[in-house]
Nucleic acid binder design. Sequence first.
DNA 1: ATTATGACCGAAACCGGTTTCGGCAAGTTA
DNA 2: TAACTTGCCGAAACCGGTTTCGGTCATAAT
Lengths: 367, 367
Amino acid sequence: MITLMRETSHTTSQFAPRVTISDLSSELGLAKGTVSRALNNYADISASTKLRVKQAAEKMGYRPLSHAQAIKTGRVRSVGLVLQNFEHDGHRPFLADFLAGISNAASQEGWTMTLAMANSEEHTRDTLARLVDERKADGFILPRTYLKDARIDSLREADVPFVLYGRTEDQAGCAWYDIDMKTAFEQAVTQLTNLGHQRIAFLPGGDGFTYSKIRYQGYVSGLTMNGLSYEASLVGKASVDQGSGYENTGQLMAAAQPPTAFICAVDQAALGVYQWASERGLQIGRDISVISYDGIPEGAMMTPPLSTFAVDNQTAGARLTELLIARIRGAAPENLRELGPATFLNRGSHGPVSPAGHMCQKTTVSN
Amino acid sequence: MITLMRETSHTTSQFAPRVTISDLSSELGLAKGTVSRALNNYADISASTKLRVKQAAEKMGYRPLSHAQAIKTGRVRSVGLVLQNFEHDGHRPFLADFLAGISNAASQEGWTMTLAMANSEEHTRDTLARLVDERKADGFILPRTYLKDARIDSLREADVPFVLYGRTEDQAGCAWYDIDMKTAFEQAVTQLTNLGHQRIAFLPGGDGFTYSKIRYQGYVSGLTMNGLSYEASLVGKASVDQGSGYENTGQLMAAAQPPTAFICAVDQAALGVYQWASERGLQIGRDISVISYDGIPEGAMMTPPLSTFAVDNQTAGARLTELLIARIRGAAPENLRELGPATFLNRGSHGPVSPAGHMCQKTTVSN
DNA sequence: ATTATGACCGAAACCGGTTTCGGCAAGTTA
DNA sequence: TAACTTGCCGAAACCGGTTTCGGTCATAAT
């Protein structure tokens, strides 16, 4: 009985009384359509009526229902985001920041964010398809882009607006925001060569990801910028977590002329370098130098604290939604491409090349 | 020119052709309303037509537009979530799991999730109000509940369905899911007393949070269950991160009869205990025992690995959305309250009370 | 003095669904 | 057989907006 009453009252009075556009029009003595056009700045409404309507709307607290407009306009004023939580989670610590950036930028424009998570590539495609089909979002932010990315293909084909966090091989029709990782990794090489290092190893990121290729290119470019020659034996295999970082460190250090410094595509791999070194009594920053990328919080708590390039995921999220909204409003994707900076956290994990230690002669160095 | 064409084609052909309910009705030779009622299982539609309609809908790939239905029903089939990212972020590592749970459970019912983040209590209220006002969600999940929670008050007053992750002081009209933390902390005390500990300290969580009170109650109840008397001097101040945990550990260990074991309301505080001990050459698990709560990933990487109660935030998110959807569909909140288990990770940070060390005589022990 | 031209607004159609209402045919009851 | 249900469906109103289409009136052009 009580239950019944609850249900009833719930379905009837549900919310505070809303003011609709009809309320506004009858209050103003204008036609409903006129009010709508005034609010949407149509050219055939006089400036004075526009002002009057807008003031009344403000005063009466009128807020259009986005789903009511959507039925005619096809836009729900929402940015879509499908996260893949099956990947190596180097970006997990930044998730909250990233989401905060999106959320804030979206609400700035009166938009909202609809979020879904997928646990496989197929699940991602299905989820994306469902959200598109049900028009739950007007466009999408695609994080963690691949060189060849099925999500991009399907959205491009369906002509659904999207923006990439990262780049991809075929940029046609793609708007994107990315971090200038190439410069960052060039700087990493420069830092180390300035400290005397000449055998600088590189631990790349996950295969297939665009970020992985670009960071690698930055490493290579940094070598030539500093007059060092590229050596394939100094490049490890994909290292995306502590375990793989640890293993690949061991592999590279077993060489006849082991590296004196490591550049890691991701911080998690750097933790593996730390582990390998500490197990052998070697001190990071003195016996082995490490510079890495991501800026995970654990990095600050290591001994010594990890020198790394930090990225501001909150502004990334914010810029991405601004770009996406612009894209949805019709801007050409070619004009919506942006590179943000990574900031170097100059901490203790890199130092001058160790005089003793594994370094012997410098045979491979040109110049 | 190219730009213009892009824009044009974008606004016109935008998506793949959708099949509407009118397409269905004309295809079937039925009235639009009849089709709608058939799909929604109205009683005045014959079973045979229902079947025919549903099969045709399936075959033609018909999916109703939630915002088109919302205009009449008032429901957009979306669960709302406003995260406060200004709080101490003990739950940050679990964010992805939590969101995945919500997302999966929601899409199971054909629902979606609209997410927003706020950086102050006021911002949270505003955001919540806006989402309610614009009907962006049919109900809300409120995480991290306080004993007195302004969000609950305003949603209750506005008669908007919601469900709590956690409990609150005034449960009237509240549906919730929570972890049985009281039992967990009782077990923690029992574990330690079985190992001979009699001076067991407690580091509580953040002030004002319901979880903090319940975990404290579990600690107290565990003491009496095991014949130990409560001692106010064994209870520290709020310790929600490593820093405060470190400090409060020092405070408690400075007593004439220092504790031999610590129970921490949150794992982050336990990290502070580790730090304090390691700086003094004391070994966790031997010289000082620690049992904690949360199950953060860092805990497994400590030496020794942290004994703690882990909570499955993915199923928490899933259950919460199931409860919320039930609530929105009219179920009484009193029937939507659930307690999930915390699972003890029996690791190395607790052990028998140290024979040497700080322990002296047992004066305060009754029995 | 007419006529064409704009500026400005009302009326109505429309978007994709849901829900109410009424009517018809078949089966029940009187 | 007439009256009454009942089962089942069509028609139309409705939800809260947007957009198209004319129409009125004042002003400018002829």
